[in-house]
Amino acid sequence: MEVQSFIANENKLKKLYYICSEDNYLREEFKQKFIDKFVDEEIKDFNLSFVQPGEDYLKRLKSAVQTPPLGSEKRFVISHLEAADSFDKKEAEKFIALLENLAESTSLLILSPEPLDKRKKLYLRIKKQGSYHEFKAPKYSNLDKWIVSRFREYNKKIDKRSIKVLENMFSNKLEILAAEIEKIVTRFPDKEKISYYDIKDLISRERFIEDEEIFAFLDLIGEKKTDKALLSLKEMLNKGVYPLYLLTMLANQIELLMQVKFYSQFTKNNKEIAKKINKHPYPVKKALQRSRNFTQLELEKILEEILTANYHFLTGYYPDQNTALEMIIIKAINY
């Protein structure tokens, strides 16, 4: 089932939703559609909270879900969680107790890239308390349909050869694909049908941006060097890097820094951390060095800012994306 269909059929709000998808785009899509359907605009400021993973996670989550709603019957808490199965026995028991004692006035949405072990107590408790669902990025013919539907949202058609080119370059990484599709339709506003010859040069530019360039950019943010960070940003944009692609790359690196910083409390060995988070030791080593420039709270705030902007970019909320990206960076530096 697709995210859109799931939300459309969810007519009675539950106290707990545990949503898993390794695809960040699908997790963000679920979060935004959940908010759009269930969280009234007038109560967002006081009754919608976000809890990011990191230090004292369970303590912060418990505080959020136990806070009563203000001027409303419901309070909503949305939390990103890397892997609940990585809790030790004591933490797992606390987490289960927290979920079992949710107030009727609270609705908790947990978003995780990792599915739960269905043999364990945590999964069984979640199924009993609320809704557990896994969403997978589409493949093969379903991915073809997804790409076609994305173009259709912009009132565009695309030929089969172009679909295959997009799939070959970006596989089923939906966040990157969505950014590429938006770039294509923006470049050809008056064309009803997009052809291979329209896109072949346009989609190749971002392939040249390196992780090192992103890391250097993050260094400038961490060192609070606003002028140099904005200059670096402009240089990347001048190379033809699409703002939404850059935002996606930044989100990926911030998530890596958060993971590495969390595990660095227990070990400074990059190989051990890499094994924990299923990453190659080299980028983990680099992230371990860069994570010292940020507190966990700063990283959480920056990531939330980026994810919100990412959604606004996709929905066309920001007409001038370059300027919007500059404002996001300035805000991140000032945290």
Rank of each mutant, 00 (worst) to 15 (best):
Y263W: 14
E212I: 12
S171V: 14
V260M: 04
A274E: 03
H280K: 12
K183I: 01
K276H: 11
Q253N: 15
E182H: 14
Y282S: 06
K261H: 12
T248C: 10
K234C: 03
E223M: 14
L231C: 05
I194E: 08
L237M: 13
E206H: 07
K268G: 12
L247Q: 05
L256S: 08
Q253V: 03
K261T: 10
N252S: 10
S264I: 05
V260R: 02
E182T: 12
K271E: 13
E210D: 14
A178K: 12
F208I: 04
E180R: 04
K276W: 11
Y196C: 00
V185T: 10
D219I: 08
E255D: 13
K279L: 11
V284D: 04
F215N: 10
A251P: 01
I203Q: 01
F266V: 11
N269G: 07
D227A: 06
G222S: 09
N172I: 12
L202N: 03
N252W: 03
K234V: 00
K224N: 00
Q265G: 13
I254S: 03
K173S: 12
K276I: 13
I214E: 01
L202Q: 05
T186N: 14
E206D: 13
F217A: 05
D198A: 06
K279V: 08
Y245A: 05
Y282K: 09
V185N: 04
E206N: 14
T226S: 08
S171E: 14
V241P: 03
L231I: 14
E180V: 00
I221T: 02
L230R: 06
A251V: 04
L174K: 04
A274H: 04
E255A: 13
D227Q: 05
N270K: 11
E213A: 13
R205E: 13
V260A: 04
I176A: 01
M258E: 08
S264T: 13
P281H: 01
E272G: 09
N238K: 15
L250C: 00
K173N: 15
L230T: 00
D227H: 02
L231W: 11
P189Y: 09
L256W: 09
T267V: 11
S204I: 12
F208A: 06
T267F: 09
L218G: 08
S264K: 15
R205T: 14
E272W: 09
E235W: 04
A274L: 07
E175R: 11
I203H: 02
S264Y: 12
K224I: 01
L174N: 03
K279R: 15
E192D: 10
L244W: 09
S232M: 07
S264D: 10
K279W: 12
F262H: 07
L220A: 07
L256A: 07
L174Q: 07
I181N: 04
K279Y: 13
L250H: 02
L256E: 09
I194R: 00
G222H: 02
K234G: 06
M249D: 06
T226A: 05
L231F: 13
K225N: 14
E206G: 15
P283A: 02
Y196M: 02
I203T: 01
F188E: 02
K225A: 10
F266H: 04
